[in-house]
Write a protein that binds this DNA or RNA. Structure first.
Lengths: 145, 145
DNA sequence: TAGTCAATTGAGATTTAGTCTAAATTGCAT
DNA sequence: ATGCAATTTAGACTAAATCTCAATTGACTA
């Protein structure tokens, strides 16, 4: 956790940017939340911890966190952008239940390998990817007609 | 092309819905466009063909087309929803260039198989999936610092 | 052919995620 | 302290998408 703070600081300084209290609040909050979150969630969480950061700053800081590699943008279930922190949270894909909205994470080596291979063959310099699998989870499947 | 019209008709009738001229215009236009398109693009195309369909109807009809399986929602590059028609356009994934926005389609059997396997092991009843791979295409890669 | 009624449409208001702007504030270097 | 660039805030703004509701359409039946 402290190491993430250090990393973010280093990232900011390397660009001549400042590690302000507001940016610290956003960073800390992003790492307190263990699930996927939306920008708006984060704003509320911050408020709930009696800290005041404007919406604009939250969005701008999230962009910086993504650029620094500490936070990822992940699956869009619908139309909101979702984020998740990276520390202690390796890359994975998502199964998303259409009924209850549950998100199941998975990682499959061979799948990632295939993808790398495809990119190599297309001379595509891959920066990131995400997979969104929609369907019904075990619990919801038999409820459906 | 006529078969898509028949399929859509059948789908609509099976739900007690009507095959109206407006729905036909949307269907036809969606199959004239060969690339990914956005709802707004479609609206403009329709207008350009001197047909008048309201924005609301376009969105509503696209939803129906997706439900009927004739059209897919695909990769979100940014924040708009993109669509593509299904007929003569098998399932595939997308490489998206961050620089020029080009979309390269690919299909890899083993990747799809891995995914099916993951779903089976998680008792997940898969309905659809999409993969969005971000990076730089061959042409843009060397332009970047 | 007229009457009925649910399905449908269009126009415009509304929502909402996200961006932008301008003025005030902060933080660092001198 | 002073100066200046970076930053923040509040609120205006944008754009995609949805919603509302009155008017229209179209299938069916008498």
């Amino acid at each position: 956790m402290d190491s993430t703070k250090e990393k973010f600081k280093t990232f900011l300084y390397s660009r001549g940017l400042k590690f302000t209290p507001e940016r610290r609040f956003v960073l800390e909050e992003a790492f307190i939340i263990h699930d996927h979150f939306e920008a708006e969630d984060l704003l509320l969480s911050i408020r709930r911890h009696n800290r005041r950061v404007s919406r604009g700053t939250v969005y701008r800081t999230l962009d910086l966190l993504v650029e620094s590699g500490l936070v990822r943008k992940v699956a869009f279930i619908d139309k909101h952008t979702h984020y998740e922190h990276v520390y202690g949270h390796d890359h994975h894909e998502h199964l998303i239940c259409l009924e209850c909205g549950r998100v199941i994470e998975f990682y499959r080596e061979e799948l990632e390998n295939s993808l790398q291979d495809v990119c190599r063959k297309n001379n595509f310099n891959i920066k990131s990817h995400k997979m969104e699998v929609l369907g019904y989870c075990k619990d919801c499947d038999h409820k459906k007609p």
